[in-house]
């Protein structure tokens, strides 16, 4: 029962191992493809918020509860006389959306910072937010470093940088 000399045959054990390896790889590939298809199909539900451009291009039905997000435009925040209602403009650097919100804003709500608002688009085109969440970027540095960068003109403005 010996193999002919000079022709190495894979042993049954090694062949089994190879077969198991192909099975694992094939299984993983199938699962990856399936998951990728599902994620693509449900992309609209996975996206946490729409940008002002999405609102303009895809159109969001008025009176439907959605989330929109972007950067709070510089110098666009204004408080109403009641001291609780805030209006501001959300921009994604190509389109803007005016947002009105009554309530307490999170600590990180600032001009030039990211924001996500949940609410409804009114028929007049103003977004009436029921909830406002702050979204911050991935830069971390001490205040002095930020000030020094701004002073020396090396500051990378989030509105010109990697904003979505």
């Amino acid at each position: 029962m010996s193999a002919p000399a000079g022709i190495p045959r894979p042993s049954p054990a090694r062949a089994r191992k190879r077969r198991r390896m192909y099975a694992v790889l094939a299984g993983l590939t199938m699962i990856a493809i399936a998951v990728a298809l599902v994620l693509t199909a449900f992309e609209d539900s996975i996206v946490f918020f729409y940008s002002p451009t999405d609102v303009v291009e895809k159109g969001v039905a008025p009176e439907r509860r959605v989330r929109i997000g972007g950067l709070v435009k510089e110098n666009s925040i204004s408080k109403a006389d009641d001291g609780l209602t805030t209006t501001f403009i959300v921009t994604d650097l190509s389109n803007t959306l005016r947002v009105s919100y009554t309530g307490i804003l999170p600590d990180m709500f600032r001009e030039g910072q990211g924001v996500v608002a949940e609410g409804k688009l009114s028929r007049s085109g103003v977004f009436l937010a029921a909830e406002v969440l702050a979204k911050h970027d991935e830069t971390y540095m001490p205040r002095e470093v930020a000030d020094a960068l701004k002073k020396s003109g090396q500051w990378r403005d989030p509105e010109k940088g990697h904003a979505k």
């Binding site: 992309e43 996975i46 996206v47 946490f48 918020f49 729409y50 940008s51 997000g69 990211g114 996500v116 969440l133 979204k135 911050h136 970027d137 991935e138 830069t139 971390y140 990378r156 990697h162 979505k164």
Partner: peptide, 16 residues
Amino acid sequence: WWNTLHQPASLTRLDA
């Protein structure tokens, strides 16, 4: 891949 409330990675950014 998607708009999230969570910010992107800080350490594996290539530009700066």
